[in-house]
């Protein structure tokens, strides 16, 4: 067994270099469907993070107990249970948000990002690393969802974090940024094509930043040793 990855590299991979949404393009369904506003994106991201951290932790804990031939059904069971829990808790404590995101919360079950991390990482690593990986991947996804949501909301309505109080309570009203009532807006941003265009722009931006960074430190030292080859499961 190769040396286990350091926390640093786990976090770096999850948030940036192997961002599941921008690099692996996993979990496109919630990404495209729920990012009509920054608040929705944030809510969806937090729900996904909760599920992925819990499922990673559990999968890692039981990894020696579960025989290889039944691991996929076990992962599905674990993930489905956690998603249902998150859905119930959301209904009980964030009801307004649930009304907006309800349908997509159950769809977290089929988010291949989560089963992908369970299979590729959690089932092969200690529980602490699996938890860190879950949180990092979840945070990476949350950042993408929130940014894309903010982008689409801003272009379409001229606001950012409109109705953030639904998710974060009254105090969050101050988060809302608005261009004012007379902003006409570009409708396409909030329609499904806008999600694809926005995502494309974000991927392009990430790639060009990577390229720039690579160019800056091109000569001095060789690129850091390739991390343990992560078996990215094919998107389902």
């Amino acid at each position: 067994m190769s040396a286990p990855p350091s926390y640093r590299s786990i976090v770096g991979e999850g948030i940036w270099s192997n961002n599941q949404m921008l690099v692996a393009l996993l979990g496109l369904c919630p990404l495209l469907a729920t990012t009509t506003s920054a608040t929705n994106g944030l809510g969806m991201g937090l729900a996904t993070t909760a599920v992925i951290a819990c499922s990673n932790g559990t999968v890692s804990l039981v990894r020696n107990l579960v025989r290889p031939e039944i691991r996929i059904p076990v992962f599905v069971l674990v993930i489905a249970s956690f998603v249902t829990l998150v859905e119930l808790i959301m209904q009980a404590y964030f009801y307004e948000m649930y009304l907006v995101l309800g349908l997509f919360i159950s769809l977290i079950v089929v988010n291949c990002m989560i089963i992908g991390r369970a299979e590729a990482f959690a089932s092969k690593n200690r529980v602490d690393r699996a938890l860190v990986d879950g949180l990092a991947v979840g945070l990476g996804a949350t950042l993408v969802l929130t940014t894309l949501g903010a982008l689409r909301e801003f272009v379409a309505q001229g606001t950012i974090f409109y109705q953030a109080d639904l998710l974060l309570g009254e105090a969050a009203k101050g988060l809302t940024i608005s261009l004012g009532e007379d902003y006409q807006g570009a409708l396409i941003a909030i329609l499904p094509p806008g999600a694809f265009i926005g995502l494309g722009l974000m991927i392009a931006l990430k790639n060009s930043i990577d390229k720039l960074v690579k160019g800056l430190k091109a000569a001095p030292k060789p690129a850091p040793a390739a991390p343990a080859p992560s078996v990215e499961t094919a998107a389902t």
């Binding site: 107990l65 579960v66 031939e69 039944i70 059904p73 076990v74 069971l77 674990v78």
Partner: peptide, 8 residues
């Protein structure tokens, strides 16, 4: 295997 799955 069946038992483990059932337990989960």
């Amino acid at each position: 295997a069946g038992f483990v799955l059932g337990a989960f």
